[in-house]
Nucleic acid binder design. Sequence first.
DNA 1: GCTCCCATGTAATACGTTACATGATTGC
DNA 2: GCAATCATGTAACGTATTACATGGGAGC
Lengths: 212, 212
Amino acid sequence: MSLRYGILGLLSEWDASGYDIKKEFDDLMGVFWHSHLSQIYPELNKLEKEKFITSQSIPQEGKPDKKIYSITSKGKEVLIHWLLTPPEPPKIKDPFLMQAFFMDHIPADEVILKLKMYKKGREQRLEKIKHAVEERFMSIKERNVMKARIIISAAVLKRGIQQEVQYINWCEETIQLVESCKFLWDKNKQTEFQYTDVSDQLSAYFFNALDI
Amino acid sequence: MSLRYGILGLLSEWDASGYDIKKEFDDLMGVFWHSHLSQIYPELNKLEKEKFITSQSIPQEGKPDKKIYSITSKGKEVLIHWLLTPPEPPKIKDPFLMQAFFMDHIPADEVILKLKMYKKGREQRLEKIKHAVEERFMSIKERNVMKARIIISAAVLKRGIQQEVQYINWCEETIQLVESCKFLWDKNKQTEFQYTDVSDQLSAYFFNALDI
DNA sequence: GCTCCCATGTAATACGTTACATGATTGC
DNA sequence: GCAATCATGTAACGTATTACATGGGAGC
């Protein structure tokens, strides 16, 4: 139920087409939401029927008309109303962590490989976000203006970057942990290890993170 | 498509009923997945039809029969196959960050209030997770055994705790940022502020997080 | 020649959530 | 008395993803 408000929020800043909106979702807004064109187009039609947005068609050569949407005052009202209501609780779904949780079933080297590959993916994502954020702030610095909009969006983008950085750090730490505990995966002597056999590695790993 | 593997993974550790599985999802596995009973029960039936799990009904008084599921060797095979395939990319949806991104539309005091309320929710969640993790590790320490299973699940749970801690920190920092930049939300003199008017606050906020 | 970008959308399917249905037991 | 826990499930609805449909222009 939040997609529509993401669209309204975006249109509260600038007029845009469905295609433009999708690019924003892939780009900066990607740190907190994602969506497909086949979901955005129907949602835009609904929002227009409900009079929260209006559109004007701009004819183009060789392409379908470009439909530029603008937010209405009614649309701004519902946006602000939504901003003041408590957010839906986050619905955590992290397929990689789910796999990781059960990786005692695959060899330690495979575990390390998977962690390294996943880390790489996260690093690429981080670079992409950093690049987008830098571009945004360059143009803001040039225009030499400052608004609440800029501060609050910067805060959200910082959170996105932080998340990536910390996921990458976790991958690194966990690679080291698994490397130092490889023997536990060894099928031949898997039977009886004691807690104290790895308590040093465990406490190093958890140091400064938990207090168990 | 990952729910089924979460169920299989869980059943690779111990036999369980749908109700038990739901509790695990709410509890420890909650750091990376969540699901409803009305989704778990049909999935269990599907998995049984596909011969990945088997069940035995245990009659009870005053309650419906308890159906205890066990994983089959075929089920273990598909679990391991899944563990070796690349995970689906995470589908980020964070309704609170989406709201935050557009909070220049509501008064600064409301923004601070929302951040404080959200922070509180995260703190409660953190306490719940910490509690569950501590319980788990107590019983492991008592039994004085160590397996790959324990190490790898600990790593995932650490990630869950980290995430909460860092979200809470971000809330705090952002509350301070908004407090020190309140004047930007002031509707009367919203017109013309310069980048340099807040560059100190911004660089303090971004210090050690970004290098822009 | 092939892929990517632009630009719109529909249809079919898959996945997820809320509401409905039943009912005994335990604790506040 | 009321809510929570145990225990199973179905039905209706909502959201999200993939596949299908069209087609010109740019760059390799």
